[in-house]
Amino acid sequence: MNKLKAMAIFVKIVDVGSLNGAADKLSMSQSSVVRALAALENELGVQLLYRTTRRLTLTEEGRDYCQRCRQILLEVEDAENALTQRQITPSGKIRITAPITFGRLHLAPIVNEFLTTFPDTDVELLLLDRIVDLIEEGMDIALRIGPLPDSTLVAKLIGNVHYKVCASPDYLQKAGIPNTPTALRTHQCIRLTALKSHAEWTFKETGKIHKIGISGRFKTNHIETALDACIQGLGFCQFLSYQVGQKIAEGKLVPVLEAFQPNPVPVNLVYSHSRLLSSRSRHFIEWATPRLKARLRLSDSEFI
């Protein structure tokens, strides 16, 4: 048995989620894929996948072995790339995840440019407003906004964004402009329930961070919906600068309490310590970093 080939087949089965799909991707017969998987399990003496008529599920041993297979296969690929100079022109698939709004506004245009510049690459961009487990969900790179408590991640800082409390000009004309964060307690505030602290907003006053409890008639888990409600005059809402910058520039929203902004929020490209970074993923990070930094600097100069 060719162990490296069997490992590659196993990883492809996991990535695609089916034996037939893996066979199609590898231009092999399904019977050959089944035999390779069976031979690998027999060699290892463990079951790697639970197989039913409807789905494949990794066993605990299979999950650990798949992670190690990815590392080994990437090391082999990098070794070959180093010999053939292929790392100069990246090729292959990169899986990236990012928050929805930031990904759509800033990361997607850079991914599109990367694909145009390097036609041998494929990118899958997964936009979700939740923390994605890079290993569990098979992602190569994540863009994270906020502190990184997970010590298993390697991070490359690309910039910062800022909190902005905003309201529509109509709402401000009707209800007045608050002079201090505590004044928000008497105003209608739109709550973003996707945030753990949606009933409190953070501010910085005389060098100290403090939280203000807010309330209002409307709450939502969706950024765009909160933006629409804010523009329509339903009250104040606290956004991150990249989410609201264009609306401020267009005059649809007005920032308030600028003197009480809390500390900036870091934006990082990250990957896992426990998953070897491929040369194509490394190339993307190095290529995308200055472009993302430039977009964030432009956003700061225009809207902050």
Rank of each mutant, 00 (worst) to 15 (best):
L4M: 10
A8W: 09
A8G: 10
S18H: 05
A22D: 02
D24T: 11
Q30P: 02
S31N: 03
V34S: 12
E41P: 08
V46H: 09
R51P: 03
R51G: 01
T52P: 07
Y65G: 09
Y65C: 10
R68S: 12
C69D: 04
L73S: 03
E77F: 10
L83Q: 14
R86G: 14
R86M: 14
T89R: 14
A98F: 01
A98C: 06
G103Y: 06
I110T: 01
E113G: 11
F114Q: 08
F118W: 00
L125I: 03
L127M: 12
V132D: 08
I135P: 12
M139E: 06
A142V: 05
I145M: 10
I145Y: 07
P149G: 04
S151G: 09
T152E: 01
L153N: 01
G159H: 02
V165W: 08
P169M: 00
A175H: 15
P178G: 07
A183T: 09
Q188H: 04
Q188W: 03
I190W: 00
S197P: 15
E200S: 14
F203E: 01
I212S: 00
I223M: 01
I231F: 10
V244N: 11
V244M: 11
A249H: 13
E250N: 04
G251L: 06
V254P: 07
V256S: 07
L257W: 04
L257N: 04
S281T: 09
K293M: 15
K293T: 15
R297W: 14
S301D: 15
E302Q: 11
